[in-house]
Design a binder for these strands. Structure first.
Lengths: 150, 150
DNA sequence: ATAATTTTGTTGCAAATACAACATTTTTAA
DNA sequence: TTAAAAATGTTGTATTTGCAACAAAATTAT
């Protein structure tokens, strides 16, 4: 069997590295673009769900959004019913950065799929989606402290 | 166009997170498994090439291998001709861990491709390989301080 | 041959990442 | 209805990560 996981790791690290370098121009430090885009696309999302969406530790997400809040890119709002949760929303400043992040994202996607036909691109997306669904089950399992037997 | 890059990011973070948790059992701290496997498979490789293989910053790789060396999992050997380079080799202890890492890796791969036919798996591997080739060009470009225009 | 450039490696920082441990609220079970 | 469990969020601490800046050797250009 060909090694798909290493290819995925290489692609992910390359693109994350590029994004982090390019977004410094907008005063976004490492990783922050990840959180900001998801909050823009899911206004009102809470920390816990955000960390599950991105697949990152809860505490990492907590500190990332603390920083985004300190930089006035997002804001936390108390929920009127549930006293425990804090809903996350982009500020206007955050919303203004959103299209810049997406522009970079689309450019990177274009680079990535260069030479693939439309059909191949669609197929790749479908296959990756299925792989992700498989993998996130394991992730949630292991993150909850459970063991995988192999 | 479907978003393939986010899927890749989610898969990569999930699996890296799982691996890091599982390899603590072998006293491998975060990320170290990445370097150890590549050194086992490419004995004599130098730091610079290793970082390019993994797609990680040179200084990050430097510190990871310093730690692997301190833990007697790899060793650095001077080259008789080129005084500048240091060739990296696994120790016996490092080689003993290698199959354990690979076992986990294969298990994760099985989980990831669950439900994909042999044909689909092969196709996915091929497409990812092409994407990776595309992306690594950009990575090397940006890492060398050059700008991407978009 | 000498100078300029690239390759390779290292340290000093500053920042992100994540595990552990905790607190509080909400939900579920007895 | 109370007790137990789960969900949600935070801080303390240790570690990794990576950009700058540097140094030395090797390669390339003049």
């Amino acid at each position: 069997m060909k090694d798909i996981l290493r290819e995925i790791g290489m692609i992910a690290r390359s693109l994350d590295s590029i994004s982090n370098i390019e977004f410094k121009e907008y005063d976004l430090t490492k990783g922050q673009y990840l959180y900001l885009v998801r909050i823009c696309e899911n206004p009102g999302i809470i920390l816990e769900k955000l960390s599950e969406l991105i697949k990152v530790d809860r505490t990492t997400a907590a500190r990332a959004i603390q920083k985004l809040e300190a930089n006035h890119l997002i804001e936390k709002k108390a929920d009127p019913i549930n006293k425990k949760i804090k809903c996350l929303f982009p500020t206007e400043k955050g919303q203004n950065i959103y299209p810049l992040i997406m522009k970079e994202h689309h450019y990177s996607t274009q680079i990535a799929v260069n030479g693939l036909s439309e059909k191949e691109q669609l197929l790749l997306a479908t296959l990756l989606h299925r792989v992700r669904k498989n993998v996130e089950v394991s992730w949630e399992h292991v993150k909850k402290g459970k063991k995988r037997e192999y």
